[in-house]
Amino acid sequence: MDLTKTLIVGNSGAGKSWLSERIADSLNGTWIDLDLIHWQPGGFNVARQREEAIRLAREAANHDRWVIEGIYGWLIAEIQSGATALIWLDLSEAECTNNIRQRGIRRDGNDESFAALLHWAETYRSRDGSSSYTAHARIFHEFAGQKQRLCSRDEIACFASLLGAP
Rank of each mutant, 00 (worst) to 15 (best):
T4S: 12
T6V: 03
V9M: 08
N11I: 06
G13F: 02
A14S: 04
K16R: 03
S17K: 10
W18F: 08
L19I: 01
L19C: 06
S20I: 01
E21G: 14
E21P: 07
R22T: 03
R22L: 05
I23N: 02
I23M: 05
I23F: 01
A24D: 00
S26G: 09
L27M: 07
G29R: 00
I32N: 07
L34R: 02
D35E: 02
H38P: 09
H38G: 09
G43Q: 07
N45A: 12
A47P: 12
R48V: 07
R50I: 14
E52T: 13
E52H: 09
A53L: 05
I54W: 02
R55C: 11
N62K: 11
N62H: 09
N62I: 08
H63Q: 13
H63Y: 12
W66L: 02
I68Y: 03
I68F: 06
G70M: 02
G73I: 06
G73W: 01
W74A: 08
W74P: 04
W74V: 09
I76D: 03
A77Y: 09
Q80R: 15
Q80A: 11
G82P: 04
A85Y: 04
L86K: 03
I87W: 07
W88V: 02
L89F: 01
L89S: 01
S92M: 00
E93A: 09
N98R: 15
N98P: 08
N99F: 06
N99P: 05
I100C: 03
R101P: 10
R103I: 02
I105Y: 00
I105M: 01
R107N: 14
D108A: 14
N110S: 09
E112T: 11
S113T: 11
S113R: 10
F114T: 06
F114M: 08
A116V: 04
L117N: 04
L117A: 07
L118M: 00
L118E: 01
H119N: 14
T123V: 09
R125Y: 09
S126Y: 11
D128E: 13
G129W: 07
S132I: 00
S132D: 05
Y133D: 06
T134N: 14
T134A: 15
R138S: 12
H141E: 14
H141P: 12
E142I: 04
F143R: 01
G145C: 01
G145T: 07
G145V: 01
K147V: 02
K147A: 05
Q148W: 10
R149F: 05
R149G: 08
L150E: 00
S152M: 00
S152D: 00
R153N: 14
D154H: 15
D154P: 10
D154S: 12
E155L: 05
I156F: 10
A157V: 11
F159I: 04
A160D: 05
S161Q: 12
L163G: 04
L163E: 06
G164D: 03
G164S: 00
P166R: 15
